[in-house]
Design a protein around this nucleic acid. Structure first.
Length: 407
DNA sequence: CACCCTTTGAAGACC
DNA sequence: GGTCTTCAAAGGGTG
């Protein structure tokens, strides 16, 4: 059963990792242009995506050599670079945190201002605010500034009401069952920290932004996500319909979700016969929340559609976020976890370990389960000599448009 | 049509 | 306790 990590220790999720992020960015920023000559071709290729996204920044070195394989060892790198590289760029914002002294605030000046967080041109990919894209739990969160208040009203208040939590939720749930002022409809506006337009009109991918997004588009978002249209299949055991309960249809779940799926059990006509156990999805972590929000913009800006490539860009952007910016997503994620825990106190991530394979708990045989595990293990073993990285490089080479690679 | 790819983070499993 | 594995989202690509 998921638990809050040490009550309060969960705040901001992973500070350590964020520190690492900064280190990464720092390191990437500081590495000389020619430093990558030592890197393998895969690294070079993989860096191209980043270059493509950062090249729009005037003056930006557009060099971010750190790659996924290296991102895990930034603490070490940090030690190597810290003395030499902490000379600039901290902007004085995080001087109290030694680990952030070298953070490259100039590295990626957040070109994705929130005004473009909604891409009218993207009808397929949702951002976190979009009704069809709101994560089951994300949609429940009141994305108001209160959300990030110094002393968030999460656990104590929420838990204090936990006795009746399954029936009458606390304010966290009000965003779902009855929105308070500043509920879901204000999700995007609340992301005001992103609203500093930087290099307006210049796409992070080196292209003029092909759209002029604005938040008015979000106005059309359903203030009451499809959760309110939930059908019986999405009923929480407590009787409260909740969108985190996903019909166990594997990949289909997304489509169903996007269409207000919970009231459409017939979508899965083939498997209709078998009584399905609803699958309660994991709460989204900070990065997932970030991805949901930013995906549409990246797609619009980069004219990319491959999620893998987009995720790479988003991963880099995530690292480029300031600590404050990330902290807000960590806070959102933390609230999601709390809410999830309140709604599904008996739920465990383990529940989806097997169910997730097919979307139907227990549908997949243990043999299949083991097969997948084995597959991954083999992949990892292969990657010890570049297996994963090679696949990564290959993917990028093929998936990332040539124009992006030529920047 | 299931799975892969790709990202980060959380949580469970395992040693 | 540290490490490994899985799953969250997303959608084009692949076999």
């Amino acid at each position: 059963m998921p638990q809050l990590s040490g009550g309060g220790g969960d705040d901001l999720g992973a500070n350590d990792e964020m520190i690492a992020f900064k280190d990464e960015g720092e390191q990437e920023e500081k590495i000389p242009e020619n430093a990558f000559t030592e890197r393998d071709l895969a690294d070079l290729k993989s860096s191209l995506v980043n270059e493509s996204e950062s090249s729009q920044s005037p003056g930006a070195p557009a060099v971010r050599r750190g790659q996924q394989g290296e991102q895990r060892s930034f603490a070490e790198k940090h030690r190597q670079h810290h003395d030499g590289v902490s000379k600039q760029q901290d902007g004085g914002m995080y001087k109290t945190a030694a680990a952030y002294q070298g953070y490259p605030f100039l590295m990626l000046p957040d070109p994705y201002h929130p005004n473009s967080s909604v891409s009218p041109s993207s009808n397929k990919v949702s951002v976190v605010q979009q009704s069809h894209g709101i994560h089951p739990l994300t949609s429940l969160l009141p994305y108001s500034n209160e959300h990030f208040s110094p002393s968030p009203p999460h656990l104590p208040t929420d838990m204090s009401q936990k006795t009746g939590v399954h029936r009458h939720q606390s304010q966290d749930l009000s965003g779902y069952y009855s929105l308070p002022p500043g509920g879901v409809g204000q999700i995007t506006p609340s992301m005001g920290w992103q609203s500093q337009p930087v290099y307006p009109g210049l796409s992070p991918c080196g292209f003029r932004q092909p759209y002029s997004s604005n938040l008015t588009g979000a106005a059309s978002y359903s203030r009451f996500p499809h959760s309110l249209m939930l059908g019986p299949s999405a009923m929480h055991p407590t009787g409260i319909p909740h969108p985190a309960i996903v019909p166990p249809t594997g990949k289909q779940e997304h489509d169903q979700y996007d269409r207000g799926m919970y009231m459409k059990p017939h979508v899965e006509s083939k498997r209709e016969k078998e009584p399905k156990k609803p699958v309660i999805k994991k709460p989204l972590n900070a990065f997932m929340l970030y991805m949901k929000e930013m995906r549409a913009k990246v797609i619009a800006e980069c004219t990319l559609k491959e999620s893998a490539a987009i995720n790479q860009i988003l991963g880099r952007r995530w690292h480029a976020l300031t600590r404050e910016e990330q902290a807000k997503y960590y806070e959102l994620a933390r609230k999601e976890r709390q809410l999830h825990m309140q709604l599904y106190p008996t739920w465990s991530a383990r529940d989806n370990y097997e169910a997730g394979l097919s979307g139907v708990a227990g549908e997949k045989s243990k043999a299949d389960w083991g097969k997948k595990k084995r597959r991954k293990r083999e992949k990892l073993q292969d990657s010890s000599t570049g297996g994963k990285r090679s696949a990564f490089a290959t993917f990028k080479e093929e998936a990332v448009p040539a124009q992006l690679l030529q920047i």
